[in-house]
Amino acid sequence: MRYEAPDTTEAAVQLLAAETGLARVLAGGTDLLVQLRSGMVDPDLVVDIKRIEVMRQISEEDGGFRIGAAVSSAELGEHAALSAAWPGVVEAAELIGSTQIQGRCTMVGNLCNASPAADSVPAMVAAAAMVTLVGPDGRRELPAEAVAEAPGKTSLQKGELVESVFLPKRPPRSGDAYLRFIPRTEMDIAVVGAGVSLTLDEQGTCQTARVSLGAVAPRVLLVEDSANCLIGTKVGAAALEALAAAASAACSPIDDKRGTVEFRIKVAGVLARRAAEKALERAKGTA
């Protein structure tokens, strides 16, 4: 196994593109190292991206935030402006693993691990996050929900890697939230996750909304039917119940050691409703 730690995105792309065997990108390593140790993967090349300056930065851009691929969850939490603008995304990133893990793990790593249960991904999807990919053929942009295709599988091309993720500018009266269900209180993996981001007009009517669900399908879902239940409403009890029902209807989960099909379907609706209530409070400035 060869280890490389290039200084530029372009050099990383060259290494990944030239590798004929299995190549893996190393950011925080909180997934990759576990997979290496347990023998799940045996890569020929590991490319560490933590020495690439642009990947270590959080920068404000057009009123939004560009977050480098090697920025840790802890660094997100320490960024006051980002935490104020996107509290739901930051709270999701700060749910991953433990305090120690959060010092290493990255949202982009969470995204590229392509687990349907990844905590930060539903929050990014609800936030309409866009990722910037760099590959041998240049740069391109993808919505966050288009990165994972199936458990463990991404839409990235050979030699391609994610350089950053962009969270857009927030209009006034906006709020987002992420909630997950775990049987413990921490150190766990989502049995169900739900992200909601919404914007109200001056009268308190929901103008835009995005609802996402994790761990209830092979990939994180963007649930437009749930969002449509909120748009044009005051986000009252009836709209929230409709949102919950639509969220449950969108699920296609599996029975496994972490939860049953019926449990995940029901709890997906409950959490989507509770996340919407939390996002609403934040949009109203009451949270």
């Binding site: 049987p183 413990r184 209180t185 921490e186 150190m187 766990d188 993996i189 496994d256 050691k257 972490r258």
Partner: peptide, 16 residues
């Protein structure tokens, strides 16, 4: 055995 590890064999953590 489906859960031979502390992730899915859930002993309580301090906050539990």
């Amino acid at each position: 055995l489906q859960n031979p590890g502390f992730l899915d064999y859930r002993i309580p953590v301090a906050s539990d």
